[in-house]
Amino acid sequence: MFLQQLINGLMLGSVYALIALGYTMVYGVMKFINFAHGDVFMWGAFLGLLSAKFIGPNFIVVLLLTMLLTGVLGVVIERIAYRPLRHAPRLVVTTSAIGMSLILSNLARLLIGSETYPIPKLLAVKGFHLGNALINTTQILTLVTAVVLMLLLQWFINGTRYGKAIRAASEDSETAGLMGISMDQVVMVTFFIGSALGGAAGLLVGMYYDAVYATMGFSAGLKAFTAAILGGIGSIPGAMIGGLILGVVENFGASVLSSYRDGIAFAVMILVLLFKPGGLFNAFIYQKRV
């Protein structure tokens, strides 16, 4: 039972980590909580569903198309709701993000419907026994995809020029601007990557539960945000590790208190905010005045 819970927890946690990366990257560069990110994740699941219908059972292509489409969606959202507010106070941007979140979730409900949709099978589901735990191919695929995407992101952030620009902008966007880094481009790339990762997470979650629905963004978004602050918001390795920890904690907690499953993440969030608002990886960014 222990091993089973651990595997389920890591699986769920890797998805939380993928979503959390979107929060943390945007927070790093623009210093506000992108409330709409949970709904971008939900749209990612729907776009994944559409791509799977069009392309058929070819996981890699479906994944790439989903990520591309969701990334573009993220950039469009930034253009509409955040770019005009680049120099506005942070709370104004946050409010705009809340509005954007309402728009996205309601658009999905009105355009697509409020039913639960299954995702076409992209892979034959086979179960394996690992000791006395059961693990299936979808779980393995989810875990592997998430890890590969995170490694790619690590390489992108640490090994490319754009990654360097993003790191510079997270540290001090004004100075980065003075050094000739175009903030508009950095923000665009950040939103594209963050949303694309969220879209990938949406597809993976949709495949795992075989269900896509219009309200899936809210609680997933809040949990991923919890993962982001657990790791220390603004820190990329923090989001990855925070996601994994949260997934495991939630799974073990749910085996004790099953009807409060969703509450566990919120309790973790409030505890982290109370006792270690900087999270595991950094302890200063949260109180920086912007």
Partner: peptide, 12 residues
């Protein structure tokens, strides 16, 4: 949806 649009538009 309208509430959301109102929030974004008012903020901008």
């Amino acid at each position: 949806l309208v509430v959301g649009v109102v929030m974004v538009v008012v903020m901008i």
